[in-house]
């Protein structure tokens, strides 16, 4: 910690400094404290939808990625109860979509899968919804498989805020939510998305994939085959 920061919170008893304007998640990450998360990516404005990052602050549950750190907060995160609830949320994300990891190109690099490993998920627990969701292969360089979308809106944010293109958006409501793209045909091929866009680098799952990259890195040699998501997201890959 280079600069002196006078304000602190505690997370699971550990004193964690923070700067004005930081969220609990920001402060935690800066102090190498891992709080499981899926819809958060420090490069973008916090979203707060997956709720995996929920922590208990002074007895109340809040999403740590959106909650500002405030002097003296006593935060509980790595507790049996919270990890159990995070596990349930992860299971919910699996059953509401169609996730067939063994045949998915993202397997081993997928954050949903990695969080599931981290939380010790052994089964989906809930009954699968088997929704019918559309796959869009119309783009020459990109495959959009909505079966794996978890509505984190990272692609939405990246395309809007970094690429300045607004290629993605959310439509529908509730369980009928769906990722839509910015073209009258509804097809990705008719948008101005480029494979090099920031939006193509942020999807935590295998919903947005670059074409013709299939299994260039063999299964078994991928990120989460060797590192936990905790180590990866704290930027410490123990290489």
């Amino acid at each position: 910690m280079g600069t002196f920061m006078s304000k602190t919170i505690t997370i699971d008893g550990q004193v964690v400094p923070f700067k004005e304007g930081q969220t609990i998640m920001d402060a935690a990450m800066a102090a190498d404290v891992y709080i499981p998360h899926l819809c958060h990516n420090p490069e973008f404005t916090p979203h707060g939808s997956c709720k995996l990052c929920t922590v208990k602050v002074n007895g109340r549950n809040v999403a740590s990625c959106t909650m500002p750190a405030v002097e003296g907060q006593q935060v509980l995160s790595d507790t049996l109860e919270l990890n159990d609830e995070r596990l349930s949320l992860t299971q919910m994300l699996f059953v509401e979509g169609n996730h067939i990891c063994p045949s998915c190109e993202k397997s081993g690099n997928c954050q949903l899968q990695a969080v599931a490993y981290y939380l010790g998920m052994m089964s989906p627990h809930y009954n699968h919804f088997y929704p019918q969701r559309e796959v869009d292969a119309s783009h020459p360089d990109v495959l959009l498989d909505r079966n794996r979308c978890i509505y984190c809106e990272l692609c939405v944010r990246a395309s809007r805020d970094v690429d300045g293109k607004n290629v993605f958006g959310l439509s529908g409501r509730g369980i009928g939510s769906t990722l839509v793209v910015n073209s009258a045909s509804g097809l990705l091929g008719d948008t101005n998305l480029a494979a090099t866009d920031k939006a193509m680098q942020v999807c935590p799952t295998g919903a947005l994939l670059k074409k013709r990259q299939g299994f260039t890195v063999p299964i078994g040699q991928r990120i989460f085959d060797h590192h936990t998501i905790k180590d990866v997201q704290l930027g410490d890959k123990h290489e």
Partner: peptide, 21 residues
Amino acid sequence: FAHESCGFCTPCRVGTQLQKK
């Protein structure tokens, strides 16, 4: 509730469906 969940957050989007089922 399942019909009216806005769908933003995981617990409500999926949890209200599970309740209904």
